[in-house]
C-alpha cells in the first residue's frame, strides 16, 4: 500500500470523481447524449485514453477487477501502461480474462466473449461527435442533436455508396441509440456494432480531449444506420484465425516477413489464447500452446 500513499485512491481527487460520476449518471439517463464534463489533465498525453482513464478512475472500487485492451490486445503498450497505472494508484486486481473482469477499459474493440450483467465497458473516445466531419461547427451539431436533425448522417452513407458501391465506413459506424440520439461508437470496427445492441453490460464512453462523456445503459437499443436498399452488414473474413482457427471473430492482419508473408489472427488476444488452451489449432499455430510457451524463459 505504500505505493498509493502519495495519491488519492485511483489518482483523481474525490471532488473530480463526483463531478465525473454526475456526468456519467446524466449520460446513462439520456442514452447516447454527449454530456460535457471538466476533463482533467492526466499523466498521459491526449489521445492515449485520458477520457477512458478518468471514467474508469471514477467508477473503480477496491473490489473491482480491471481488464484493459488496446485494439483487442491485452499486451500492447497502451493496455499494459493503463493496467499498471491502476495497479499502482488504486491497488486493484487486474486480469486479461474477459469473464473475470468487472471493468473493461477498451480502445476500439468489444471483447469476443459475451459480456454479462454487472460488467462495465469503458471506451476511450477520440472524437465523440459523429457529425463532426460533416458539420464543423459545434454550436450547429448540438442544435442538430437537440432537434433530431440527422439527415446529414445519411449524406455520409450516401457518399460511400456513390463512391464505392457500398457503405464503405468500416469503423466508427454511426448508430442510433434508443431511437433518439445518433452516436459515434468510437472507432470500433463496425463488426462490433451488433454487440452493443441490448448488451447486458453498461457501456460508458469518455473523450478526454473533447471533454465529453456518454453512455449506453444495459439492454438499450443500438441500431446501425443504413439504407433500405443497402442494409447494414458487418465485415466477414474468408479464413479463420491462423492460430486458433476461430471463425466469425474480428481478425487482424499481421505481417510476418519482408516478402509479403502475412497471417490473420484474432484481434482479441484473450479469446485467442483461451481457444488455444482448449486445443483449437489454426494452420500457423506452434506445436505447444502459446500461453505455455510464454512462461518459458527466453534463451
Amino acid at each position: 500500500m505504500t505505493d498509493i500513499a502519495t495519491y488519492n485512491f485511483a489518482y483523481l481527487d474525490e471532488q473530480t470523481k463526483r463531478m465525473i460520476r454526475r456526468a456519467i449518471l446524466k449520460g446513462i439517463a439520456v442514452p447516447g447524449y454527449q454530456v460535457p464534463f471538466a476533463s482533467r489533465e492526466m499523466p498521459m498525453p491526449y489521445g492515449w485514453g485520458t477520457g477512458g482513464v478518468q471514467v474508469t478512475a471514477s467508477i473503480i472500487g477496491p473490489e473491482d477487477v480491471l481488464k484493459v485492451i488496446d485494439q483487442g490486445a491485452d499486451d500492447t503498450t497502451n493496455a499494459v501502461s493503463i493496467r499498471a497505472f491502476f495497479k499502482k494508484v488504486a491497488n486493484v486486481a487486474v486480469t486479461t480474462e474477459t469473464a473475470k473482469a468487472t471493468i473493461i477499459q477498451t480502445r476500439h474493440r468489444i471483447p469476443e466473449h459475451p459480456l454479462s450483467a454487472g460488467q462495465v465497458l469503458v471506451y476511450q473516445v477520440p472524437i465523440p461527435e459523429p457529425l463532426r466531419f460533416l458539420e464543423p461547427r459545434e454550436t450547429e451539431t448540438r442544435k442538430m442533436h437537440a432537434l433530431e436533425e440527422y439527415g446529414l448522417m445519411h449524406v455520409k452513407l450516401y457518399e460511400d455508396i456513390a463512391r464505392h458501391g457500398r457503405i464503405a465506413t468500416s469503423y466508427a459506424y454511426p448508430v442510433k441509440v434508443e431511437g433518439r440520439y445518433v452516436m459515434d461508437p468510437s472507432p470500433t470496427p463496425k463488426f462490433d456494432n451488433p454487440k452493443m445492441h441490448r448488451s447486458p453490460a453498461l457501456q460508458l464512453f469518455g473523450a478526454g480531449r473533447e471533454k465529453r462523456i456518454y453512455a449506453v445503459p444495459p439492454f438499450t437499443e443500438v441500431v446501425s444506420l443504413d439504407f433500405e436498399d443497402h442494409p447494414f452488414e458487418v465485415q466477414t473474413f474468408d479464413q479463420p484465425c491462423a492460430l486458433c482457427a476461430a471463425e466469425n471473430v474480428y481478425l487482424d492482419e499481421v505481417i510476418l516477413d519482408d516478402h509479403g508473408g502475412h497471417m490473420f489472427v484474432c484481434s482479441d488476444t484473450d479469446h485467442c489464447e483461451k481457444r488455444c488452451e482448449q486445443g483449437h489449432r489454426g494452420h500457423l499455430a506452434p506445436e505447444t500452446p502459446l500461453a505455455l510457451e510464454r512462461t518459458e524463459p527466453a534463451q
Partner: peptide, 16 residues
C-alpha cells in the same frame, strides 16, 4: 448527388 439528396434524407427518405 448528395447535395440534392440531403433534404430528402432529412425528411426521412431511406432508399438509396
Amino acid at each position: 448527388g448528395a447535395n440534392v439528396g440531403e433534404r430528402l434524407m432529412a425528411v426521412g427518405d431511406r432508399h438509396y
